[in-house]
Design a protein around this nucleic acid. Structure first.
Lengths: 236, 236
DNA sequence: AACTTAAAATTGGTCGACCAAATAAATTCT
DNA sequence: AGAATTTATTTGGTCGACCAATTTTAAGTT
């Protein structure tokens, strides 16, 4: 196995919360903790790990978000009933999550947006179209002033996600969009071709309205092409 | 019993953290808070909202996860430099996030897995293939015992995501997989066709090894087809 | 002995107080 | 006066103590 890598990660885990998560993982690996088990009380854990309850609670929250633990008030915290090896791997990955590459972000965004616009074509209603139109107009007004309209751009795309009626897809977009914006600023990915983008938004609106899913997906692909090729060109 | 008390309890019932998030949103809407601004200190917020600092901190953490806020130790918490309207919409969505439908989860999983396996074909190396082979063998051993091998199944898919070298895609899968497993249990989606699934895993392994991306994507689509049609059949 | 009820202990939830780092203000020195 | 240094204050980080719901144990009743 990759013991070397494991030790390396252990050194990296310098934040108290991550240390606790590592310890919980150790409890699982040593067999002291099994899927479905009740976790020791927060007090015991904080005592055993020599740290305040705050950090224990934060670690539990983080693992709860990834579905690894489940807390029942005034009762206890329980390990998910998934296989032990899967659990260990899941926790290992939670610890590694940090510093996404720009390419990873943009690739994921493309996948989510393509699916999003596809479902939008199939599932929107009349009210939705009005919302999308408003969103488009907001963007047009701002863009025609030659002001960078990143937020209106973003809003238009999120509105499309709304039309897709898939909350998970939208949540995922919500999670990565701030990171993408941050990367945009770092790499200075300016809206060089605002006119083109504006036109593409208009086309997207029409195609979604006509429920032409295939065409809309293609337009979206083209719309994101610039950023994609730029992301691929960066050495990371 | 006492109806008045019950009603009072119900009105107050919403989670304190979400109330804080709502209040922060109000601060933005009223213009008291603008993008890039420094948030009032946690103490002031807890005092103003009539609640302990714990809840304020938890709310900030949640908004931080979605990239809406950014905390600098011993300095302050700052609002992201995104457009005000986008920010408001983002927060509104964070509050809405709850109770994903099974269809949404499976749809998203399909999209992520298809992209994942595609990149796996393009980016894997010899070491990766060995890991995938181990993962496949673990699954085969368990599956041939006619035991439900959900965790090994899951691990195989996560290994494919590893080969894809896209941390964001993998993180997204990590986030939704526990929810999917939970839904599997609720709807009793058993591995009825284990033999078929086993064979598909073998085929996937071969196609990834051969770097036949197109075929692998198709196999993965077929592999997830059963769950997809089942998900679509559920009225929610 | 079996069931019901009441008291005690356990446990996650919440809060206010203290800590150390970062910042702002005051002081000192040139 | 201006810059450097020191002091004071602000601020997020951390911790231990208390709260209320839950669970466990004990006591009481039939």
């Amino acid at each position: 196995m990759d013991h070397v890598l494991e030790n390396l990660k252990e050194v990296v885990a310098t934040k108290p919360t991550d240390i606790i998560i590592q310890q919980v993982k150790d409890l699982l690996m040593s067999g002291q903790l099994k899927p479905g088990d009740k976790l020791p009380p927060e007090r015991k854990l904080s005592e055993k790990f020599g740290v305040g309850r705050t950090h224990v609670r934060e670690a539990i929250r983080k693992l709860e978000f990834y579905g690894i633990l489940k807390t029942r008030p005034q009762s206890g915290t329980y390990v998910a009933s998934i296989g032990i090896s899967a659990l260990e791997s899941l926790i290992a990955d939670v610890l590694k999550i940090d510093g996404y590459s720009f390419l990873s972000l943009v690739e994921t965004r493309e996948v989510l947006e393509l699916s999003s616009v596809f479902h939008a074509c199939e599932r929107h209603n009349e009210e939705d179209i009005r919302l999308l139109e408003n969103s488009l107009n907001d963007y047009i007004v701002k863009a025609e002033k030659h002001v960078t309209a990143v937020e209106e751009d973003l809003m238009f795309h999120l509105t499309i996600a709304d039309l897709g009626k898939n909350k998970v897809l939208k949540s995922m977009l919500l999670i990565i969009i701030p990171d993408i914006i941050a990367s945009y600023n770092v790499f200075n990915v300016c809206q060089s071709s605002t006119n083109k983008a504006l036109e593409e938004h208009r086309i997207l609106y029409d195609q979604i309205k006509k429920r032409d899913a295939e065409a809309a997906v293609q337009t979206m692909k083209e719309h994101l092409k610039g950023v994609m090729t730029f992301a691929r060109s960066i050495i990371q």
